[in-house]
């Protein structure tokens, strides 16, 4: 499937995966993340239940401390 991930189009072999799997595949290991799928926020407790499918627009924003 093809999805838009952080403004870039990326192709994956799987037809669908949940957010936890996406983070694993992309090796996104930052602790603090904001995730949006089609402009809707996905909370941490929904990482296993929300699935990404072909054509979705996914944003993974990571935050680090300092200000």
């Amino acid at each position: 499937m093809k999805i838009t991930l952080n403004n870039n189009i990326e192709t994956f072999e799987l037809d669908s995966f949940n957010i936890s799997e996406l983070l694993k595949i992309k090796n996104f290991t930052f602790r603090m993340l904001v995730i949006k799928v089609n402009e809707k926020v996905v909370k941490r407790e929904e990482y296993d239940s929300v699935f990404v499918k072909n054509g979705d627009n996914v944003s993974v924003i990571h935050l680090i401390s300092g200000g």
């Binding site: 602790r31 603090m32 993340l33 904001v34 949006k36 402009e39 926020v41 909370k43 924003i61 990571h62 935050l63 680090i64 401390s65 300092g66 200000g67």
Partner: peptide, 25 residues
């Protein structure tokens, strides 16, 4: 704190997704 940055992004997206939010990270 990163936790607070995450909190305000999620809160603004939920309530005021039309207001630009400018984050430092």
């Amino acid at each position: 704190l990163a936790e607070m940055k995450q909190m305000i992004i999620e809160t603004m997206l939920q309530h005021y997704s039309n207001i630009p939010l400018i984050v430092g990270s």
